[in-house]
Design a protein around this nucleic acid. Sequence first.
DNA 1: ATGGGTTTGGAACGATCGTTCTATAGTATC
DNA 2: GATACTATAGAACGATCGTTCCAAACCCAT
Lengths: 209, 209
Amino acid sequence: METGHMPWEKNFDHNSVLDRAMMLFWERGYRGVSMADLVEELGINRSSLYSTFGQKEDLFVQALVRYDTTHRQGWLDDLARRSDPVDSIRQVFAEVAAAPEATRRLGCLLVNTTLEFPAKSPRSAALVRQAFLSTQQFFEEQLLRARQADQLDPAIDVAGLATALLALFLGMRVLARAERPPETIQPILRQVDILLRGADLGTGSIAEW
Amino acid sequence: METGHMPWEKNFDHNSVLDRAMMLFWERGYRGVSMADLVEELGINRSSLYSTFGQKEDLFVQALVRYDTTHRQGWLDDLARRSDPVDSIRQVFAEVAAAPEATRRLGCLLVNTTLEFPAKSPRSAALVRQAFLSTQQFFEEQLLRARQADQLDPAIDVAGLATALLALFLGMRVLARAERPPETIQPILRQVDILLRGADLGTGSIAEW
DNA sequence: ATGGGTTTGGAACGATCGTTCTATAGTATC
DNA sequence: GATACTATAGAACGATCGTTCCAAACCCAT
């Protein structure tokens, strides 16, 4: 059969296969990808797929976890590391809005999953819930850091704004998945700025987009 | 067979059957409802189902249209008729947040559809796109009416704010579908108020929630 | 050279999918 | 009362679903 590897090690890279599976679920949704599709497009054998990743739902959960750690958590961590607290928040929206059409149209796997699963997979639901909470906490932490650095109107309700930012972010992802031209999403960025500036503060301390 | 009706008239009500089909799709998604489910839960015969509503996707599109006209357009029209322009906008968010758990958890069929369908059904995609646009226009119209009634800071970017409100609304529906306790959604209402109040206007002309 | 352990290829499983088809029940018209 | 027409009931279709199973291929250890 000519595999050219040790019989106890797989002849495919675990994470790269998982990444491709994640991509397929991202594009077509859980129910839109069949096991036959996975076997074909991952270039991995049916038996290997089951022996390494378990059932379809198991595989999906693993793909979802991987998405969460790399595309969400990793992304947010990068933003927080690279930018000011206020700018890191603005970057979240800016990067989604500025993403190339193909990427933007995928939306967010976590959001897509929420709306596709009708309480069927408790693990997925819990994962998504936790991811949303974590994103909200990201916003809240950045706002707190901004406040401490005097970059934020002290009158701002940090927790409340963090929730609204989360909702704006999720809504942006929905709009991106619908076939909206990018320029119709752009105005959201300015409204984020207004919220960050505070209700009654006409400050110029925040740089332009 | 004892049907007790004229052979040329159906023995079920078209719209009430369509409503129940819509409800099923709303709860479980397009792919989550099989034709067998529909036959069983609608109490209508398989053949009747096909002869009156066509194929599954046809039925879904009809259910989607019905949802759009009754639950979205009709709802928004009611709000606009019953309230001040500004209040009608606030009511949109207030009613979603205040809806009973069971209703809130359904989210919005149009939003759910967006994320479930990966460009598979062009009709559904077009419908959703149009519905989102119409909702955005609702916000914009109310804002314009508010401006004409001097209830709105003239400096506000009406079109931009309408887009942001749409995103906030969609995000709220996503959060509602995830298993969030209602009090975690509530803060969004205050942020909507802040946006409606304008970036640099500390007015008290807007009533409390 | 042989045997153990593991991946691989691909057939095959029952269940369910959306859809079609045939036979029957029922009421009008002629 | 025979005929035409339509809704109903339910069997049946092929296709595809997720999953399981088995034999062949492979490399190491002995």
